[in-house]
Simulated assay, not measured.
Amino acid sequence: MAINLQKGQRVDLTKGNPGLSKIMVGLGWDPVQAKGGGGFLSSIFGGGGGQNVDCDASVLLLGEGDKLKSNKDVVYFGNLKSNDGSIQHTGDNLTGDGDGDDEQILIDLSRVPAHIQKLVFVVNIYDCVKRNQHFGMIQNAFIRIVNSANKQEMIQFNLTEDYSGKTSLVVGEIYRHGNDWKFAAVGTGTTAPGLSEIVRSYA
Results as ranks from 00 to 15, higher is better:
9 Q>F: 07
47 G>N: 05
38 G>E: 01
130 K>G: 13
64 E>Y: 06
73 D>I: 02
175 Y>S: 08
58 S>N: 08
195 L>W: 02
103 E>W: 07
179 N>V: 12
24 M>E: 10
187 G>H: 05
164 S>Q: 13
132 N>E: 13
126 Y>S: 00
29 W>V: 09
135 F>P: 10
71 N>S: 13
83 N>K: 06
43 S>W: 13
203 A>I: 03
97 D>Q: 08
109 L>C: 10
156 Q>A: 12
191 T>Y: 06
171 V>P: 06
18 P>H: 01
156 Q>V: 14
122 V>W: 03
139 Q>T: 15
197 E>Q: 14
135 F>S: 07
162 D>A: 01
7 K>Q: 10
197 E>P: 04
61 L>R: 03
147 N>C: 14
86 S>H: 02
1 M>A: 06
154 M>N: 10
57 A>N: 09
149 A>I: 11
52 N>F: 03
34 A>I: 01
92 D>H: 01
109 L>T: 03
196 S>Y: 02
176 R>E: 13
66 D>Q: 15
128 C>Y: 02
164 S>C: 02
131 R>S: 12
87 I>V: 13
95 T>S: 06
134 H>F: 07
26 G>I: 06
188 T>G: 01
179 N>D: 13
160 T>M: 12
174 I>E: 11
94 L>P: 12
43 S>V: 02
27 L>I: 15
187 G>L: 00
168 S>K: 12
152 Q>C: 09
85 G>P: 11
62 L>P: 04
182 K>S: 14
50 G>K: 00
18 P>Y: 02
129 V>K: 04
12 D>S: 14
202 Y>L: 03
59 V>F: 08
168 S>L: 11
179 N>E: 10
80 L>K: 12
78 G>V: 04
5 L>H: 05
161 E>V: 15
112 V>C: 03
21 S>Q: 04
14 T>H: 05
162 D>N: 08
18 P>R: 04
19 G>E: 03
117 Q>P: 14
124 N>M: 02
117 Q>K: 13
139 Q>L: 10
5 L>M: 11
168 S>R: 10
45 F>D: 00
90 T>D: 09
135 F>E: 11
69 K>V: 08
90 T>W: 14
145 I>Y: 02
40 F>L: 06
90 T>S: 15
105 I>N: 12
140 N>M: 09
179 N>W: 06
27 L>M: 14
75 V>S: 10
108 D>H: 07
38 G>K: 00
181 W>P: 05
70 S>Y: 11
134 H>L: 11
49 G>F: 00
24 M>Q: 15
87 I>Y: 12
16 G>I: 02
124 N>Q: 07
138 I>F: 11
79 N>Y: 01
196 S>E: 07
81 K>F: 00
129 V>L: 09
51 Q>R: 13
39 G>T: 00
41 L>Y: 02
8 G>D: 08
172 G>Y: 04
144 R>L: 15
3 I>D: 15
77 F>H: 05
62 L>K: 05
191 T>A: 05
62 L>M: 06
51 Q>E: 07
156 Q>C: 11
3 I>C: 09
32 V>E: 03
40 F>D: 03
86 S>W: 01
